[in-house]
Design a binder for these strands. Structure first.
Lengths: 127, 127
DNA sequence: CCTTGACTTAGAGTGCGCTCGAAGTTTTAG
DNA sequence: CTAAAACTTCGAGCGCACTCTAAGTCAAGG
């Protein structure tokens, strides 16, 4: 009886675009370049699983922290290679984290400088 | 006697590139698109003043906080129009500041999410 | 004086990350 | 059954911010 309800729910590309804010065009693009590997209905239409959506969200986080597409490709290539690559993936993410932290600090510094300029008055060109 | 030492020191494009970390190519590009207005020696070679360098540094701060070139062009067009535009410039910088603060927060959130993933382990694709 | 290297301009080329268009199939609403 | 909307692939196009090339001029050291 209690056959597990696998095959749970899947979503069309439009639904995923809607849920994630990533356009259908971009989702297809991500698949083309190897960031996603989405299953198909018999018709050929994509069927996104919950996992696929999680991955889209994760890609969004990497992109919003300015990880280059190349590196994201590398990351998911490692994922595709299986669990033996976990160390390397971890390493990649940690390196990224360091970079992001650095940029965060630089951003704060530049913002401070701009705010000083704002405070001192709106114009001219003194630093 | 105490004639003020105006005409103080000027710098070649290579010196400015060196001081600021902005390439000579990029400095010429910035001038072309109206971000800089650099004087010339009789030979035609650019002579950067201290003010010019300050401006280059300020452009760097705006760029490093991802202000689009278009907006920087707008800013310096206002500067060129004179002091009557100070309010508008201030407004532009303040709007930018708000944007940067927002991005800063988003960046921190995305970084948190990535760090959670790192903490939980290196791989898989759960969010 | 002569060479070496830095400078000039105008315009073309590059890399990134999408974004769009065309032509055709499939699904869905009426 | 039909029309409209949504999907497919493939390839081309775009906007941004540089970055480089070519062809020529200028400047400083030996």
């Amino acid at each position: 009886m209690s056959a597990i309800a696998l095959q749970s729910k899947t979503f069309t590309i439009a639904e995923v675009a809607d849920k994630t804010g990533v356009s259908a065009h971009t989702l297809r693009y991500y698949e083309r370049i190897g960031l996603l590997d989405v299953g198909r209905h018999t018709s050929g239409h994509r069927r996104f699983t919950g996992q696929d959506i999680d991955r889209v969200v994760f890609i969004g986080r990497l992109r919003s922290t300015a990880m280059p597409i190349r590196e994201i490709q590398r990351y998911f290539a490692l994922v595709a290679e299986g669990p033996t690559t976990e160390d390397e993936r971890l390493c990649l993410l940690q390196a990224h984290r360091v970079g992001v932290r650095t940029r965060l600090r630089e951003l704060e510094l530049a913002l401070d400088a701009i705010e000083h300029k704002i405070a001192r008055y709106g114009g001219s060109c003194a630093p």
